[in-house]
Each structure stands twice: as C-alpha cells, then as structure tokens.
Nucleic acid binder design. Sequence first.
DNA 1: ACGGGTGAGACA
DNA 2: TTGTCTCAC
Length: 696
Amino acid sequence: MPVAKPVSSDGRVIAHIDMDCFYVQVEQRKHPELRGLPTAVVQYNSWKGGALIAVGYEARALGIKRSMRGEEAKAVCPQIHLVQVPVARGKADLNSYREAGSEVVSILARMGRCERASIDEVYLDLTDAAETMLSETPPESLEIIDDEALKSHILGLKHEDGSDMKENVKGWLRRSDADHREKLLACGVLIVADLRMQVLQETQFTCSAGISHNKMLSKLASAMNKPAQQTVVPCSSVQGLLESLPIKKMKQLGGKLGSSLQSDLEVNFVGDLLQFSEQKLQECYGINTGTWLWNIARGISGEEVEGRLLTKSHGSGKTFPGPRALKTLHSVQHWLNQLCEELSERLQTDLDQNRRIAHTLTLHARAYMSSDSDSHKKFPSKSCPLRYGTTKMQEDAMNLFQAGLREYLGPFEVKMQGNKKNGWGITGLSVSAGKISDIPSGTSSIMRYFQGHDRLCSPSKLAKEKFELEAPCSFSENESNSTLDIIEHTKLPEEEATVNNESSDLESMEHKTSTNSLEVPFYSSMSSLKKADFSQETPLSFSGRESHLEPKLTDLQSKVSSKESTFEPGRPASEQQVKRNALRDKGTPSLLRFFRRVDPSCSIQSQVLAQSSDDTNIRSSLENNNSIHGDSLSEDVQRREMWQYNVDEIDPSVIDELPSEIQEEVRAWLRPQKRQANSARRSVGIADYFSRNKKL
DNA sequence: ACGGGTGAGACA
DNA sequence: TTGTCTCAC
C-alpha cells in the first residue's frame, strides 16, 4: 500500500518508460529472423506447451493473449513462433532479460535521476534537464522539432478533422501562451523522444513513454499508446482522465483495495473518490492509504523518483504445482541446491560489477498438508545472515528449510511418522538475498596491504572462532537428525515412484544418483555434497555484460562529443561538417549537449558498471570464508578475515598507527559505513585483529 | 493446485 | 527486526 507523502507543488517533469513486450524484443534481437513475425515467449514447454509470458504485437493482433498456454496459441494461430525462456539448472533463467534491461537503464540514466522500477520499466525525473532546456533553448524558439517528438500524443489535445496531427503537436509544443509547468512538459516530451531514439539506436529495443508531473500520471500515460509511442498528460486534462478511469486501472488499486472501494464505497472510477472527504477515506482505509486516495483522485502524487539503478534484492525460485510437489527432503535439497547455485552466481555478478554485498538470506516455501484440516497453514519464511559461496548458501538454505518445516509440521511431526501417505508436499521454493549494501571503495587495496603483514597471525584460530559465531541457524545435532529421520522413514517407495514418473528428467535423475546420502545423518550428507561442487566456488571470470557494455559507453562518448560539436558555434565549420557527416546515418540530433552535468550518484557508470582491477580480491575474500581448518595459508584465507570485523568496534586511534599511505583510505572506509545489527553481534572486532598484529 | 518468477513496500 | 501480506509485470 502506498504511503501518502506531502506534496511539493508539482513542477516536476517525470517520465515513465515502459519497454514493449520486452522479452519478445530481447528474443527477436537474438533471433533477427523473428522480427516482424508473430512471436511469443513461453516458459516450460512440457505442460500444454508452456505458459506465455510475453506476446509480441503482431501476435496480439492475431488474437494471442498472455493467459494462453503454448498449445492454445498454436491452435489459435498456427504460424505463431514460440520462443522458450532459457532454462538453467532445471528452472527458468531470466538473466538475459535482466541484462537487456540494464542496457536500457544505462542509456536512460544519462538524462536525470533514474529509478529501475522493474525488469522493463523505468521512472525518470527530468525536471532539471527540462528546466535547463527551457532556459537555454525553449521549444518555442526551435525551428525544427524532431519527428519522433511530433508523433507524441498529447492527452486532451483536440484534433480537428483535416488538420495535420504533427502540425497540431508542433503547435502545442511551441505555444508561447503556456504556463511554466506546461512548457516544462513540452521540454520533457522532446527529451524523452530523444532518449527513446537513443535506446532504439543502441539496443534495437522500442519502448513507450508517459510524461507528466508525477509518477502516477506518467505510468498511466505510458500505457495509453503502445507500442513505440509516447504520451504527455498536461494539467488541463488530468481531471477528465481520472473522471473516466476505472478504479482498478490505477496502480495499487488493481487488487483487494480496489475491489473494496468498489463494493464498499461504490467507487468505480478514480474521479468518484472526489466526493469523499480525506477524513472519511482515512476512516475507511487508514491514515496513509486514506490520504493517498484523496490525493490520487486529484491527480496528486508526491512520490519521488528514487535514484536507484540496481535491485534491492535477488531471488531465485520455482514452483512445483500439483503432482510435482516435492515429497522428500532429498528432493527439496536438490532444488534448493539449484536455486542457491543461481542465486550465488547472481550475487557474484553483483559483487563483480557493482561492488555490492548482500547480508541476509531468506527462504520461502509453500506447502500443503493433505492429512489434516490444517492444510491452510502457511509455511513460514526464514532468514539468516548470508554467507557467500555456493555450498554455504545451500547449506544455510537447507537449514532454514528444516527450521521452517519443523515449525510447519508442529504437532504433526510425530504423527507424520506413522502415516502411510506422507501427508505433506512442497509446492514452491525460493531463496532470496537482501539487505544489499555497497562495499566501500578502497577496501581491496587495504586488504592487499594486510596480505603482506598478517601471515604471522594464526588464521586457523580466528577462522574457527568465526565459524562458530557465524554458523546460522545452529541446530543441535539431535534436532536435525530427528527431523530428518521422521521425514525419511515416512516416505514410501511407491510415492517416490509417483514423483519420479511425473517429475522432470532432471528431478528423476537426482533421485537415482545419490540415495546413499539419505542414509547418513544430515550434516554428513551435506558435507559429502559439498565436495562435489566445490569447483563451482572458483571465481567467475568477467563476461557478458561488461564486455558488452564497455564498448557501448565508448561509442556513446564519441557520439556525444560529436553531437556536442554540432551545437558549438565556436567550432570551425569544416570540422563540424566532418562530424556531422560521420553522424549522418545515425540521424536525429541529440539533446544530450544540454545535460553534461548528470548527477554522479545516478550515473550508470558508478552503479551498474563500476569496476575495479581489485575485484578479484574482493570476490575471493567473500568466498571460502568458511574453510575452518586453516591448513592452507592462502592469501584468500588471509584476506577473507577482513570482512568479518565489526567496524563499530574499531578504536579510531589505531588508524594513526597504520602506515600513512593507507590511513586515509581506512578512515574513508569506516566513516560512512552502517552495520547490520546481527553482523555486529557475531563479529570479532577489527581492533583485536589489529592488536594481534601489533604484538607480533 | 499452472499466472511463472521476481521484485518492492507496508504493516504488525 | 523479522515475517506476513499485497501488488505488479
């Protein structure tokens, strides 16, 4: 539910950019032969041809809908091209779409504060850019306006028969009798048109956009004219828009709240809310929601565009519907392993590319208990401190699951044992990593410094202490064994067969491969699994996104500087001509030159592409931080210790005793850092570590 | 219990 | 704070 916020008189220019049937576009770029053909993206081809998760516009025109199954789509339209979502580790792998989304974000973020709202949606605050344009080259002074901008839709602009629409739009954009805010919107229209063309040029993706004074109206507008079009909402047309807007179309009102408005207050259109006082709405729906409703009825939304280019969490999950429900601990373990593998990989990528680390691991599951009426009970989600490294994540996730299962089973735990039918099943599993924070810069060189000095310190002792403090969700051996025993012993062979028959190949294989580990206590079986995929903990090499984006940025720079020169009157004409010629094929003039001063905190460079030659150090220091034996004094072992100390406990005076060349860096490292409460509890204290070094 | 896999945010 | 719940694409 949205929270009402005080509203600044809205002179902002906010854009919402929405990629058109994004997954389809990504697949069509990958398979150019599909361009222009009716195409849909489908996942899990096994059951009724899989589910459609994105439908191209050519296919929509032929009656294909998102809710269809693959087979259904084929029946409706035999010539449809169905592309499958990539599969990795037995589950859908959305990474290629995430990466494509990042490409788009890196372009859109050039012009102002940018918020990545979803994998294919972005909000932009273009206020500053628009103000700058308005003061330097207001639209009314422009002799030529780009065609893309002229194709914009202006909500409420009446169109007389016979008149040229583009002339109409041009008139609106350049009209001098508009107030300041509307002129800003006109600038926004030009800027967004330009951005969309840049996106198309550099990614081959089309998008639609909405431009208005706040997020809510822009979001509405972007959906009005699709695909590959943009719509602006002038103040004057807000009331008319909301009057006839079905309440459920409003973001946040598509669910229960919207239904309750319809049934309880007989509000069917957003405008119907106008008849209720703010107080009345607050009485019905609470103080925050009430105020929010009162505001949106008037087209008011103070929500800020967050400057955030990266997600706040990563998750990996899978459902196991109906007959595919997981019925053994072992199959749960198998899938948790798969999910954690993917999650771990994505966390490593985030670390490599953005220098961020996640601090909590959360497990979600859905389960049913057929045996009893209590089947409505929900499987509790559980979380613990996140440890980097695939096998550790797998181990922790399994422990979280068992904790949840014990709670879920509760009093039935014993009863389950005697049941012939194992009365429970897992229909959904997911692991996610949250509480992501930036790694302070400069850290890795500090670690390098310590590599050369702390060899004298015993890492084995430190490491062992750390392990004991860190071990998440520590269960007594009794507890974990009894849970395991109950579950395993109640499993019947025939059920196993049932599961195998109806489950995927991957899952069947898993049942055949390792039955041994089921016979031994839980922790032992874990460690035997650990050995098998240890190789997967070796650092990943850079690939894909970086090599893909890096040259693009370079391209951009040259492009920008070229464009810049076109606008500089001081340059010799011949030089300008040369650059113009070089750009001729690229076409449209860019507005980039107005906006050299992009907020560095929003720059894609710092948030998406930030790289350093020290990344390898960081990566390896987070991994393997659990080799408790200390028999190898590798540099990794040394470095990894650094991450476990509680910055809060550092006596500032120790910094003075450090070599002068790293003092400043250490201070910078400590200063802005906010610590997680639970990591503070279990950390050793870097001061101890320092003093150890001093003594030796 | 096939609208999947993911994300964000509010609330207790 | 954790865990639950809602909402959205």
